[in-house]
Design a protein around this nucleic acid. Structure first.
Lengths: 199, 199
DNA sequence: TCCCATCTTGAACGATCGTTCAAGTGGAGG
DNA sequence: CCTCCACTTGAACGATCGTTCAAGATGGGA
């Protein structure tokens, strides 16, 4: 019974990795079980709802973990929030290249696959994105005080990160992430200047 | 024999639609054949390489068609290039909502699915993205004269569009595209100002 | 008219999909 | 020690996957 925690955790972390790299429909439960060192029956023991239930937990937990990771990168970065944003994109580029361009956003691929085909999972991904926007909006208040403008900046940061992940994985290059990072810095800097000048 | 052109075209357009909505691994040849009004054998008649060959053509043709569509939207929009960019995001939001949040980028989902699993198709998606960056860079030269800065702006525009598509389809909302559009306008305006002021 | 290349059809193949379930394992609590 | 239950195992199910192929339909050129 001491293995309970381990097995369940191995299943979710393995599923997170495989969904991220191969997509949701492209990953079978047999592969998840095999790479977790267990059998398909154990997946159904812990996740009575089958693949859907496992995926829902992977989306929620993966989303929470990745949000915490990004928050940590922003907090550990340069003190100036604009520089911290730029730094985060450089880190993202390094991390992605280090994983051989495999491990980017843990839910983006799933989100696109289920958006028009699986309503409960679509909602799960939407909730994660919404929580990220919320957290990023709060951070962006350190750049622009206006709430609506901070939220727009948060959308700009997250959409550029997600889009850059797509281009970077496709081209196996850091350049999209680095270019997006420069864009974020210019945009945030411009917003700060605009406010400082009373715009 | 007069149906030849029609059948082949019906197959590719059906595949383009289904891949875009359900993903690549999530779409079977049987469904493509059925919704094309033909049989699986006909797919193999026109695409000897099977699903891979069909997908490669869908990626290339879909990428070319979508690039042309975006170019047309930019050309038909406001004369000022910055306003045209903003207008394009509004149009993208309207188009996406009109398709019930199903039809966004024709190759993004495929790109994420194959990036780490299918090298030939990964290269095909990368070439499409590269061609879009090339075209967008040329357009952005109308905003900033410096080639490197125009290219960075092009990366910002494309990554924001792709990322906003992910968030918009997931949340079934125009807001990510509209917010990204405002961000693009602010960024491009800032770049233009910076150059005008001799920055 | 007949030929033949082009195109269509649908059955069949082995593999894998998500799911179910019966049988077994093993360690904590009485 | 024995019971009990959480946990594991792996075989089996029907459905669908991508692919192959033999056989039939079609229609313009000799």
């Amino acid at each position: 019974m001491s293995m309970t925690r381990d097995t369940r955790e191995r299943i979710t972390t393995t599923a997170t990795t495989l969904f991220r790299r191969q997509g949701w429909t492209g990953t079978g439960l047999a592969q998840i079980a095999a790479e977790s060192g267990t059998g398909v029956g154990s997946i159904y023991h812990f996740f009575g709802g089958g693949k859907d239930a496992l995926t829902a937990e992977v989306v929620r937990d993966g989303g929470r973990a990745y949000g915490a990771y990004v928050a940590a990168v922003l907090a550990d970065g340069p003190g100036d929030p604009v520089d911290a944003l730029g730094h985060a994109f450089v880190r993202a580029a390094e991390d992605l290249a280090a994983s051989d361009y495999a491990d980017a956003c843990p839910i983006a691929t799933i989100a696109l696959e289920v958006a028009s085909t699986h309503e409960p999972l679509r909602v799960a991904t939407a909730e994660v994105f919404a929580s990220w926007i919320e957290a990023l909006s709060a951070f962006c208040r350190g750049v622009v005080d206006d709430e609506a403008e901070a939220r727009d900046l948060a959308y700009a940061v997250l959409t550029m990160l997600e889009g850059a992940f797509v281009l970077a994985r496709s081209s196996r290059s850091r350049e999209p992430l680095l270019a997006a990072g420069r864009g974020v810095v210019r945009l945030a800097e411009g917003q700060r200047d605009r406010v400082a000048r009373g715009g």
